[in-house]
């Protein structure tokens, strides 16, 4: 515990800007993963424990595409597109076969997919860790805001993620498909009763979730280490965020992810030793007091 340091940090604009931006970058990347997780749960009532695998594959695909084409933009698009297709295939060929079955059967399929792709990644890219390295376009000096440091790459990521969040919100709120998804998240029977093709809907939701997770992997690849099994810790973190924010709520995931990032950013200064325990305790409290999460609606 070092609350003195925390107070001192809040008194200094430089410290606030730096820690807040570093918290935002952690939180927003997690949001991209959590958004898919929460959507899938909202619409299909499935906890996609294979979601970390989408993130991992996105990062590896981006790594290879960048090596082949030397274009980071292309790498990011390819990763997102490939994972969207992968998400659809995963839903159609695997998950769709156990709808209506035991929740644990779905869990088992996710577990199998995690095992298989962790090993496939090792087979294709090797057991050692990789680093993509910073794309040349972003190898610039940091920006200074009120004395705080914000690297240009991270500034770009924050803007991009917030745009995506807005786009997602608008898309869900104002397009026909989006409204159907939102409705399905709240009342799946009703949507089916209205004669809407839920098969296509479910595949679409998985595609969207997969694409977002792949995108997050590609965006994280320049600064994080790539290794088989790298999706696991991301899965845990984004799972916590979805539960606290409310399974099914995009806004909940966004706000919780940002809150989580900021907690990490300032927690490392004020109470570095307890951040993990604090987050688990928060998750337990939320579940006990408001099982559907801070922003979610209770499922029946």
């Amino acid at each position: 515990m070092d609350l003195g340091a925390l107070v001192a940090c809040f008194a200094s604009p430089a410290c606030v800007v730096t820690q807040a931006s570093s918290g935002l970058i952690v939180g927003l990347l997690l949001f991209l993963v959590a958004a898919g997780l929460t959507l899938i749960f909202g619409v299909l009532k499935i906890v996609n424990f294979a979601h970390g695998t989408f993130y991992m594959l996105g990062a590896y695909i981006a790594y290879s595409v960048l090596q082949a084409t030397n274009s980071y933009g292309l790498a990011v698009l390819a990763a997102a597109a490939a994972m969207a297709v992968f998400g659809v295939a995963f839903e159609r060929f695997l998950i769709a076969r156990v709808y209506g079955g035991n929740v644990l059967m779905q869990l088992l399929i996710c577990y199998a997919v995690v095992l298989i792709f962790d090993d496939l990644v090792k087979l294709i890219w090797g057991a050692d860790f990789h680093a993509m390295g910073m794309p040349e376009a972003f190898q610039r000096a940091p920006i200074f805001i009120a004395g705080g440091v914000v690297p240009p790459f991270y500034a770009g990521l924050i803007v991009l993620s917030l745009c995506l969040a807005a786009l997602l919100g608008l898309g869900l709120g104002f397009t026909r498909m989006g409204k159907i998804i939102t409705a399905a998240a709240q009342n799946p029977q009703m949507v089916a009763a209205l004669g809407i093709n839920t098969t296509a809907l479910f595949a679409l939701v998985f595609g969207l979730g997969g694409g977002l997770a792949g995108l997050a992997g590609a965006l994280a690849a320049p600064v994080r280490s790539l290794s088989p099994g790298m999706g696991f810790s991301i899965l845990i973190e984004s799972f916590i965020i979805t539960v606290i924010g409310g399974m099914g709520s995009i806004a909940g995931a966004l706000l919780t992810a940002i809150g989580y990032g900021l907690l990490r950013g300032f927690g490392t200064i004020g109470f570095p030793l307890f951040t993990d325990e604090l987050i688990y305790a928060a998750m337990i409290l939320v579940l006990l007091l408001r099982p559907s999460g801070l922003f979610g609606r209770e499922i029946v």
Partner: peptide, 11 residues
């Protein structure tokens, strides 16, 4: 690559 084999068996 036991994870791969085990995963396939589970599936």
């Amino acid at each position: 690559y036991h994870g791969l084999v085990q995963g396939v068996v589970i599936l």
